[in-house]
Design a protein around this nucleic acid. Structure first.
Lengths: 342, 342
DNA sequence: AAGGTTTCCGCAAAGCTTTGCGGACTAAAA
DNA sequence: TTTTAGTCCGCAAAGCTTTGCGGAAACCTT
């Protein structure tokens, strides 16, 4: 047995007909007599023939590959989104090529270039936390290469996006805090130029207003989306003369870092301070106390992004569409002072 | 601007020479005059030319793609390994195509077939927990398609493997338990036919012997590698007339499930029962109490697997080699009765 | 000036598939 | 017997790149 795959040529030689005939027989073309068709079909199975995607790609000018750019691929959030993308890609006979920007703008630019070189048919991306310049994506759009954003998106670009309704989710958090007696509510936000930061901040402000709570500017802090800076931001809050009695963090990196930091200060959750995060289900339940959190429909997010992608490919014209997924607030112990005895 | 990529033909037409000349100029072939070479090079940059990988693949009979099969891609363990594979693949100009077996044998078989159809040059795989029949991998080896295993491997196949020294790691755990006064040590293992189960069990038995501890057969339980069955196994241990005073779980899925279950029973870790797992760093520190654990060098594991893969491709003969990575026991609070006050 | 070198470049094939068009052959009709 | 109509199949091009080989032009030598 050798390494080379069998081609139409091999089948043709074996049976003694031309390549074209084999090709036609394999797709039941009426020009080929039923008996010959049958013989060829059987031989193809016996010799384990499968069409060469490279040749098909050259001919049809399509690679059946989608490029996916994520800030990282090891956190559960992105791994799960990728998994969602992969599932619908597979349904449509496509493969994905993943490229990680490592939260860096320059690596993101590089990723776009590299993916283009591999001839992916389009790109599904989540912005790095540094990204403020979108030239690399604008070029994609100008060249009519399908592009879909998810989670961290650029709204002014003509690209379909799928996000989570952060504003609404945060308002729910504020209401939840309020009804549970927390009044000095802090928010650890991300970089202002990220849409998710802005949306959630909007929810924060509106939520406070709706609840008739006062806004303390010193309780709204900003940090980079990594554990170290989140810890720094948390310390900043804990050092305040008048500490917050509740904190909520923009994503799970921030939320868990905050939790560690609060514990390190010897403060009790939720008695001294309540904590809520945007996190995934699993981790929220394994920490102590179990973390009240807004869960992202990550897998579904990936699926939706991929679906938008395929719509884009089909229509192949200018197209922009927004899918906003609901996020659910799941109340656990980290945000309720009195344990209810059941 | 159109979607089509520029080809050598476009460059040739623009300058008015033949395609061959352009091709040669682009790689500084001495046959082409320096001036013409320069002109062509500049035009290539200006028109943003990049060679078509499909055409190259056809010609050179290589796709520069590696297939990666994992039981799942959302747990940190595998996500991190994938990330490691990807990093050295990229260094070598290769891309990876990920396929998830979902811990199912049939999906694993399917993955192998699909990856072969996409013409990956070889496969890096971690066995599903169901896999006991290796025909699909044997076929790969027979056809001389490069194959590398990591973590859960099949030792009797002629394929290079990279694993973690589970036996040694578990022995360390037993010693650690012993010196901290835990004597009834339970082990929640995985399916017996997985090498990781066998290795760690071996470490368990040897460790007990070395420490002069008695082996209680009822403390050695087996479960499937999912949260539900791990919880069941934990309950089985907790229902014993004489409970264990220490438990260690074969991987992080099991360890965290056990932790939840122990808490549910109102038992205190580590006072009532000690717990140690094979887990990754991050999650071990965020749970309460912080979990003593053996950390896997996951990223490095991926890198090593990829390196073996490239060796295999180069030598392109029969080759088998084993890399055994050390695992480190990191002691935290979940396995030490008396908190040391510092 | 004619033959010999260099220098520079193009032809064509191979790698694999699809498909329009035309060709060969058989059988039926005139 | 010749024309017509079917039936069945092959040629060749396109998609893109690399590379051995052959060819043309220019320069040098004698």
């Amino acid at each position: 047995m050798v390494r080379r795959h069998v081609s139409l040529k091999d089948l043709a030689a074996e049976i003694g007909v031309s390549i074209s005939t084999v090709s036609r027989a394999l797709k039941h073309h009426p020009d080929i007599s039923p008996e010959l068709t049958k013989r060829i079909q059987e031989l193809a199975i016996k010799m384990n023939y499968s069409p060469n995607p490279l040749a098909m790609g050259l001919l049809k000018q399509q690679t059946k590959m989608i490029g996916v750019i994520v800030p990282d691929m090891v956190t559960h959030f992105f791994a799960s989104v990728i998994s969602g993308i992969e599932s619908v890609a597979k349904e449509n006979g496509y493969y994905i090529v993943i490229s990680s920007s490592n939260e860096s703008w320059s690596k993101e630019v590089e990723s776009v270039e590299n993916l283009l070189k591999t001839r992916v048919e389009g790109i599904i991306a989540c912005l790095s936390q540094e990204t403020r310049d979108f030239a690399h994506f604008e070029k994609l759009i100008k060249n009519e290469i399908p592009l879909v954003f998810f989670d961290r998106v650029c709204e002014r670009l003509q690209a379909p996006i799928v996000t989570v309704d952060g504003c609404e989710a945060v308002k729910n958090i504020i209401h939840h805090f309020n009804t549970n007696g927390y009044k000095r509510i802090a928010y650890i936000s991300g970089p202002e130029y990220l849409n998710i930061s802005r949306n959630r901040k909007e929810g924060y402000l509106e939520g406070l207003r709706e609840c008739g709570l006062k806004l303390y500017p010193e309780l709204l802090v900003e940090c980079k989306l990594n554990a170290e800076d989140a810890a720094r931001a948390t310390r900043q809050l804990l050092h305040l003369e008048e500490k917050p009695d509740a904190i909520f963090g923009i994503n799970d990196t921030v939320a868990f870092a905050a939790m560690k930091e609060i514990k390190k200060y010897g403060l009790k959750i939720p008695d001294d301070i309540a904590l809520v995060g945007f996190t995934d289900e699993f981790h929220s339940t394994v920490v102590e106390p179990p973390l009240t959190s807004v869960t992202h429909p990550t897998f579904e997010m990936g699926q939706q992004a991929a679906r938008l992608f395929f719509k884009l490919i089909e229509n192949d014209g200018p197209f922009n569409h927004t899918v906003k997924l609901p996020a659910e607030l799941i109340v656990r112990e980290s945000s309720i002072k009195q344990k209810s005895s059941d």
